Computed example of a mutant assay.
Amino acid sequence: MPQPFDAAQDLHDAPRTGGRQRPKDAATLILTRPRNGGVEVLMGRRAQGHVFMASKWVFPGGKVERTDGTAGFATDLSPADAGRLAREVSPHRGRALALAAVRETFEETGLLLAEPAPVASVAGPWREFRAEGALPDLAALSYVARAITPPGRTRRFDARFFMANASALLHPEPTAGSGELDEIAWLPLDEARALDLPAITRFVLGEVAERLDHHERPLPFVRMIRGQHVIEHQDCPWPTRRSPCA
């Protein structure tokens, strides 16, 4: 079934504070794994004191850094996922978004969506990742959703959500990471939905559940247009607030 989006909660999650901010590119990674006849998803709780979404449970992710555009990788995005991103951004920027999702997940959880590679010494945000003897495995990613934070918020992101199976990880269990997440856990999908989640996270969790059975679902794009939340879908000829290509 199509997943509803709670527009009222979204406005409550990030109240309007005024000002005009241009959204920054960001990327998120949703990791799943089969367990006990069901599916678990990796989630983390943001530490108290954050200006944006404090104490909420989220997927690991963050903003794109300049070096994400030049970072090395072991495998590239699939032609299908590269094509979906190419409808929105250049191939270079699309790959940078995917690399940012992998890097941020490593920084926040210690997990490497990667293939073994010689240890390399590099400067900047990729230093610790490359010191692990690994290169990102972008072929393991699927591009599944996009969302832009409404105008007037303290933080605004143009976020792309990627999904991957935990079988592509070099190590199966998370570590403490950077400390941005004060708790990290593999959770059954139903339990994850019962957590204190931002509206967009809850919506994307629903998309994840649907995609486990229907891999070719149209990609949702959540944003605000003229004061109203709208969900558009790639491969659909019109925007809709209720269902993909309904």
Score class of each variant (00 low, 15 high):
M1Q: 07
P2K: 14
F5Y: 14
F5W: 01
A7V: 13
A8D: 10
L11A: 09
L11D: 14
A14C: 05
R16G: 01
G18V: 05
Q21I: 09
Q21M: 04
A26I: 05
T28L: 04
T32E: 07
T32C: 01
T32F: 02
R33V: 13
N36R: 14
N36T: 15
G38K: 11
E40M: 08
E40Q: 14
E40L: 06
L42N: 08
L42E: 06
M43D: 03
A47R: 07
A47D: 03
Q48S: 10
G49F: 11
H50I: 01
V51T: 12
V51A: 15
V51S: 15
M53L: 15
M53V: 15
A54G: 09
P60D: 07
E65M: 03
R66F: 04
T67K: 06
G72K: 09
F73M: 11
P79S: 09
P79C: 09
P79L: 11
A80K: 13
A80Q: 15
D81G: 06
V89F: 06
S90N: 09
P91W: 04
H92S: 09
R93V: 07
R93Q: 14
A98G: 11
L99E: 10
A100S: 15
A101N: 11
F106G: 00
E107C: 01
L112N: 00
A114K: 07
E115Y: 02
E115H: 07
P118H: 07
V119E: 07
V119D: 00
S121G: 02
A123M: 04
A123C: 06
G124A: 13
P125R: 12
W126C: 02
R127K: 12
E128T: 05
F129M: 10
A131L: 11
A131H: 11
E132D: 07
A134L: 09
L135K: 04
P136A: 11
A145F: 11
R146E: 06
R146P: 00
R146H: 14
A147I: 00
I148C: 06
P150A: 12
P151M: 04
R155C: 04
D158Y: 05
A159P: 00
M163N: 00
M163E: 10
M163I: 03
A164I: 05
A166V: 03
A168C: 12
G177E: 08
L187H: 08
L187A: 05
P188M: 06
L189R: 02
E191H: 07
A192Q: 03
A194L: 09
L195D: 07
L195N: 09
D196V: 08
D196T: 06
P198L: 04
P198R: 05
P198V: 00
R202Y: 00
R202G: 00
L212T: 06
D213E: 12
H214R: 14
H215D: 08
E216S: 08
P220V: 03
P220I: 02
M224K: 04
I225D: 13
R226M: 06
R226S: 14
R226G: 10
Q228R: 10
H233L: 12
D235W: 07
W238K: 10
P239W: 08
T240Q: 03
R241T: 11
S243P: 01
P244W: 11
C245G: 13
C245K: 10
C245P: 08
